[in-house]
Design a protein around this nucleic acid. Structure first.
Lengths: 368, 368
DNA sequence: CATTTTTTGATTGACGTCAATCATTCTGGA
DNA sequence: TCCAGAATGATTGACGTCAATCAAAAAATG
């Protein structure tokens, strides 16, 4: 774009330093420094002169120099549900792979395990890190007033807080990084509906628990689309599985052998290893359709082997990168760079990433 | 992850500097500096001692300090096809939105327009920037031996070269950032096949030109999947449109009114505004299915208005971010941070980003 | 007007690395 | 053994910002 070129030309060689700004503003370096670092004791008149000069010259603080000087290291923590969970294993694996690059950027990341889905546990974990002097944390959150107090305490320490994957109470976090789970459910519905091509259908829905916001949202979105656009498809009552693989397998088995049988299965939650195991040894009707969430090794495999037709994924690697970028920007007091919405990613057999996400987990113990 | 925590502890407070490394290695700072900056005139023995110490202490060069010292500014250029092209407008829009953050990171980006799909034009553009002292360039490439010489000249200047969206001859670029277009075509085929749910189908295919590698690849992938998994679907001979919207519109019109009519349309290339215009005022058979590429304002709108059922997108914003990250890493001589494959992104009505990509273009002149 | 208070200017030593200089010390070949 | 060439050590001034200090000037107060 032409603009970019002229921009660089405008900067006539080198970019202005704070000294340049001070000179242009007709004040001393010290005063300019007082202005940009909010040190107080500056006359309004001087403040304006400095700001004008900054705008005039297009001054942008040299982050590298600033960080060097103040010995800034970004101390971050990710609070993730503990346990053998394929999805969060991907998150951790990605953080691990990044570690070398993180240290080069003066970023340290601690991963702190929290009890999954337990408000009290999360609250305690939050409280326990109040004194840990983190600059920022990314939290796989819960919606509960009981964690507002800990969050407030952290915020008063100057800790930047973002919600990851599952949101926190909106007033207590600076950003949410995650997908819209209603949209994810709608997407599942759309493609499942499509797969029926106008034919009649009976769909068995499975979910971990409707207390989990993401599961409830997905279910809602799914029902919306089917109800609206695919009247020939009947939705059976969802079965709650607590994301237990064995339970998931059993439910699917029953759905397939019932009379009349189902034409499709949609698992809103996790425990898909059980589902895959059942599908591996069960006969299915022609054009049977199966949708699950999160691309992990066994869903990847199942997609390739045609036990599963669709995986809706939330790209944990992208989410982690984004969380890091946003945390860093917020800690620096910069505004957040423009970025497009995170959208539920649809995988079919043909657009799978070649690199299978590697996480070490035992087959049985996966959750969403 | 426990590892992260112990790591930070291992670093006992502060991270080692090059002075620490020198001390640990039993050499002077000067020698350590000679080693890590490849200045030569160092005994093998010393080299090893320094490397050992680096490994021992876990030394990582402080990029901020290094860049500050050497006054590093990353001078980058993006070579994009000129013209009113909705897709590349998105690329430019994204770069524009990033500009503020780029200057803060000492990155300057020039966008250089090249003649679309013309080998000679690209070669000349490449030659013309040999003396511009760029540190790195991202090029929307072509496959031709005629651009190897210019690329070689650039490389000899120390310019880092990456291919963007469309690859360059592999020996002359350090990375390719773009999707696998065969996979994109396969994906289109998979979902189009799915939408027919076993019924018979006739598909009109449109493409800009099979000389364009991406178009050829998509077509190939599409045919693979249909031929293999959907025998009931008949593929009509693809029509070449040169991505001309009017031509696209005319072809679609004819396909819809022919006898027997088509059940689906797949446009491998661009010119979709013509397609949308035709679909807006034409009757279509029940369960007619339409797949196109690239989410731009009019395909976005068409997806919402049900003229189009599927958009396969390559996320130009993600590609740009990735190009920037990779260029920076390569210029710094670092290795590339781990990142998952770029996959063709599937949009249905329900997983669209809420923020419609804003590009200013006239309706008629879009190309892929 | 004298006195306090506020505001400015001037200066300085980090921060960790780069890039250069100059003075030594070591090594190997004639 | 001597000497050239190689290897090393020691040191230094940037780079742009931060954070602090001290003195000086300006403004506000009584």
């Amino acid at each position: 774009m032409k603009a970019s070129r002229t921009d660089s030309i405008k900067q006539t060689g080198r970019k202005p330093t704070l000294s340049d700004v001070a000179r242009a503003a007709g004040v001393s370096y010290a005063t300019a420094d007082r202005v940009i670092n909010d040190r107080g004791n500056v006359a309004q008149k001087s403040v304006r002169k400095v700001h004008d000069a900054m705008a005039e010259l297009g001054y942008v603080r040299n982050v590298a120099a600033a960080n060097l000087s103040r010995q800034r290291t970004y101390r971050l923590a990710f609070l993730l549900p503990k346990g053998r969970n394929a999805f969060f294993s991907r998150v951790r694996a990605h953080l691990d792979g990044l570690s070398e690059h993180l240290v080069a950027d003066q970023i340290s990341v601690d991963v702190i395990e929290i009890d999954a889905f337990e408000v009290e546990g999360l609250g305690n974990s939050l409280l326990s890190i109040v004194d840990a002097a983190y600059d920022g944390i990314a939290v796989v959150g819960l919606q509960s007033v009981d964690i507002e107090a800990p969050l407030r305490a952290l915020r008063e320490q100057g800790v930047v807080i973002v919600g990851l994957v599952s949101d926190l109470p909106v007033d207590y976090r600076s950003a949410y990084i995650g997908i819209d789970n209603i949209a994810a459910g709608r997407t599942a519905g759309r493609l499942l509906g499509l797969s029926h091509g106008g034919r009649k259908g009976r769909v068995q829905i499975l979910a971990g628990s409707l207390d989990a916001r993401d599961h409830a949202d997905r279910l809602r979105g799914f029902r919306e689309v089917i109800g609206q656009d695919y009247p020939n498809i009947e939705l059976l009552e969802p079965v709650m599985t607590l994301d237990d693989a064995r339970k998931v397998g059993a439910v699917v088995q029953q759905a397939l052998t019932a009379e009349p049988g189902v034409t499709a299965v949609y698992n809103v939650g996790a425990g898909n290893s059980g589902l895959v195991a059942t599908l591996e040894h069960c006969d299915r009707p022609a054009r049977f359709f199966c949708v699950v969430h999160e691309l992990v090794p066994h869903t990847h495999r199942a997609l390739m082997h045609k036990q599963v037709d669709l995986v809706i994924d939330q790209r944990p690697d992208v989410e982690v990168n984004r969380a890091l970028t946003i945390l860093k920007a917020l800690i620096d007091g910069r505004d957040i760079p423009p970025m497009q919405d995170l959208v539920p990613t649809i995988y079919v057999r043909d657009n799978l990433p070649s690199h299978i996400p590697d996480t070490n987990l035992t087959e049985q113990g996966d959750h969403d």
